[in-house]
Design a binder for these strands. Structure first.
Lengths: 222, 222
DNA sequence: CCGAAGCCCGTTGCATACAATGCATACAAC
DNA sequence: GTTGTATGCATTGTATGCAACGGGCTTCGG
């Protein structure tokens, strides 16, 4: 059955990615319970690769075991702030490393130009209220910094955290008055990296992330 | 078959843990190729839960996809140093957070006593050349600090990194003259946390981890 | 003797069949 | 009316069968 007449062999990874994309897009919202058969039919495969994807995504922190079966992870405000703290530490690290590499002359000028362009495009998309695109570009800006740090371990850890944050903050997006501040902080980080100043870059990154964390939960009292 | 006459139902997680333990114990050394049937027979289950464990452990960073099938992750010296840098950033964070909590009076005295006892036992085991026990206690000391930070996200990220390091440094253990230095650095960290001094605690943790990284590859030239 | 091509076997990947568990609902007793 | 229990259903967990891919060995040709 399943119309799949054995084109097979190259699914096990793609199921993982497809499902991850579905979750990040909000197609499966936080807290949603995922059934194996349902997902299997949606993706047109059998339950086996779906189960494997569930395990992988659970280890990735996007799904959580919920008694029988799994649900999309749903972080409380407190848990989210824990994620942000770790993210701040890691982005401070990548910013420092990127600045060090710049100071050592190991960054091509084109890489910094790209980063600046990314900051521009992020700002523009935000001003024009293209939310989805703005989120995508913002994440890409941060990812680019991590790539400049040339530390795959840090990059991978950050991808995990960004994923979790993206899932859990989908609905609480963007106090509008933060637009200018965010852009300023991006510029500040960019400038510190360009100047090859690790301490300044790390501090800028940490501050930016922690500000974002504070902004992510305005209606919380505790 | 499989003699398992359906005691079943509670395996899927335990396979993951059993296999992880086997890898951490060095039963499957770095670079070793893992066959599904072989592991399945070893653990007395069918291939299905083993496959799921493979996926989960791959996401955990303990296994790596190798064309067809998986192998135990084998980090180069350079990759290992990337892991150590991230670990240093994260342990600096947890040390800071633990010290902050101490300053805020949120740590019970017993918790610090426990930590001190752990440092003692680690030192003693090292001096007496009980390698396995020393490694275990050392890890527990670091884990305890992370637990005092009360940030589950940081703790989880660190567990991943510790796992990877433990697998990849099994054979290059312990320059003997570092014993005293390690103990000193543990004491220094403990003192800074006890004093409720986040900056000092963070700095001590970072230095300790980076020193350990430097010691982990003495015969490397590049 | 060496190299290349072809075949065979082992192993993985996916699908499906089957067993068991937990939940919900309905019924009965108090 | 409420509570306890039993039964049926839906869904997960596990095992196994089947097809394809790949590596290794053999063999044939140069």
């Amino acid at each position: 059955m399943h119309t799949t007449l054995y084109a097979a062999g190259v699914q096990t990874g793609s199921i993982h990615h497809s499902l991850r994309a579905l979750i990040l897009d909000g197609r499966y919202p936080p807290g949603a319970r995922l059934g194996e058969v349902e997902v299997a039919e949606t993706l047109g495969v059998s339950r086996t690769p779906v189960r494997e994807a569930f395990r992988a995504l659970t280890a990735d922190g996007l799904l959580a075991a919920a008694g029988r079966g799994v649900r999309v992870v749903e972080l409380s405000a407190e848990e989210l702030s824990h994620v942000y703290r770790v993210r701040a530490a890691l982005e401070a690290l990548t910013a420092e490393l990127a600045a060090e590499r710049q100071r050592a002359g190991r960054l091509a000028p084109a890489e910094l130009t790209d980063l600046a362009a990314l900051a521009d495009r992020t700002h523009r998309a935000t001003v024009e209220r293209e939310l989805t695109e703005a989120v995508r570009l913002n994440r890409q800006f941060h990812r680019r910094v991590a790539e400049l740090a040339a530390n795959p371990v840090a990059l991978h850890s950050l991808e995990r955290l960004w994923d979790q944050i993206q899932v859990s903050t989908r609905r609480s997006l963007h106090a509008p008055d933060r637009t200018a501040l965010v852009d300023d902080q991006h510029r500040e980080l960019l400038a510190a990296v360009t100047a090859g100043d690790p301490a300044a870059a790390g501090a800028a990154a940490r501050r930016h992330v922690l500000d974002t964390c504070a902004a992510a939960r305005p209606p919380e009292k505790e």
